[in-house]
Amino acid sequence: MTEEQMNYPSTSTINKRYAGFWMRFWAYLVDLIIVFSINGILLVPLKFINDGFSMELGYWTITGIIGSIVFYLYFLLMTKYFNQTLGKMIFGLRVIREDSQSLRWSDLLFREVVGRFIHRVFFITVFLYLFVAFGAQKQGIHDMIGNTRVVIEE
């Protein structure tokens, strides 16, 4: 009988140490500094266009749209190709799938785009990050949506 047939968790999921709230918080702050720096470099030239006035596209400004795209692409691409962002690298954290297989685009689109969008758009949902502090596997809502976990690298 194989391990899957016996319905035992694999040893790779037993030995995982899940990253807690504060480690993830500090890593996220580092990531925000990096994203804001990238946006600053990319968006400064737009201040010299249109005599310094913001260019609007409906309800949004061009700088707001570009800044949002950079924000979501940073988290999406870094997590897809490295399983971690620069902030997570500094603090020794890694994003894994629930079943410990390699991350798929669909997992990351739900985790990094849909999950983060929900947290940023609705003010009250910021408090849902507290799930990380009190959950057994330290999952935020965006982790639950994407079927992912954040673990400490060993």
Rank of each mutant, 00 (worst) to 15 (best):
Q139D: 10
K16I: 03
S68W: 02
L77R: 01
F82Y: 11
V132Y: 00
V44K: 10
Y74M: 07
D107Y: 07
D51Q: 15
I141F: 15
T13G: 06
N83Q: 12
L103G: 08
A27F: 12
N50R: 03
F36L: 15
N15H: 07
I96Q: 08
Y18R: 09
M144Q: 15
M89A: 07
V95W: 11
F91H: 03
L57K: 10
R120Q: 07
F75G: 08
H119S: 08
I145T: 08
F82I: 05
G140E: 08
L128N: 05
V95I: 08
Q137C: 02
G64R: 07
S54Q: 14
R116K: 15
S68Q: 00
S12L: 14
R94Y: 01
V35D: 09
M23T: 00
G135W: 13
M89K: 14
R111V: 13
I41P: 09
W60K: 04
M144V: 15
N15G: 06
I141K: 09
V126Y: 10
G40E: 11
K138V: 09
L109I: 15
Q137G: 04
T11P: 15
V70C: 01
F48W: 03
E112M: 09
I14M: 05
K16D: 07
D51V: 12
G64V: 02
N39K: 10
F21M: 04
S100H: 11
I62T: 01
Y59T: 10
Y74G: 06
G135V: 02
T79I: 07
V121E: 13
F75S: 04
V30Q: 11
M144A: 09
I14T: 09
G115W: 12
